[in-house]
Design a protein around this nucleic acid. Sequence first.
DNA 1: TCATTAGTTCCGAATTTTAGAACCATGAAA
DNA 2: TTTCATGGTTCTAAAATTCGGAACTAATGA
Lengths: 111, 111
Amino acid sequence: MRTLYHPPVEEITVEGILHAFSDPVRLEIYINLAVAECAKNCSAFATIQKRTLPKSTLSQHFRVLREAGLIRSERKGVELINSTRCAELKERFGAMILAIIEAYAKQQQAV
Amino acid sequence: MRTLYHPPVEEITVEGILHAFSDPVRLEIYINLAVAECAKNCSAFATIQKRTLPKSTLSQHFRVLREAGLIRSERKGVELINSTRCAELKERFGAMILAIIEAYAKQQQAV
DNA sequence: TCATTAGTTCCGAATTTTAGAACCATGAAA
DNA sequence: TTTCATGGTTCTAAAATTCGGAACTAATGA
């Protein structure tokens, strides 16, 4: 397994972030990580939005989030623990990410 | 030509908006419309991001933006004039759209 | 009526995404 | 030390999506 690539903050783009967020599963994963008080491994999301995803698909989704610069993944034993890079990105992207999280949360509670 | 479908505000979703914004051309079109002081027709964007798009492609991009609820298109004579639904969406999506516009603008001026 | 302009629709090609199968890496048990 | 289990990755073919040329439609004006 190659080492996991995490782009430096200055290489992260608005387009890359919005592409990563364009998939409802990835959006859900990211927001779940963002509001969680602790980091989570990938398989914590094996069942999401009422369906079970194969682990190859889940792995791809995490890679997209990671390479867009949205999350940080660190190996811990046999698993990968994931957390958001929210704080790092705040400087560069201002209120954007928080505003997305809030809009999504508001929408969900309205259902 | 069928009449153009514009979803009512309550049917617009965060996921739909983020999907529409996942394409750099659509993001650019939307932001250009948002910061412009007047509505524009589709072919105003025939050349965008240093390349010329075929009009079938452009037409699809406008349809995606329209059906995501981001823009309003009205026929005026032979052409379609497009404007954002920014004001309408503010109530429902709070600062999200403005935050995206601002993050993108900041990034562009840094280049 | 005919020509022109702006945009849409159709549809095959190109690209991207999905997910099963095989694989790799780590840690723990025997 | 093997050996096994677990968590995740890679490979790859199929499915889904997007792109773009050609033909079309709708409105307008000569």
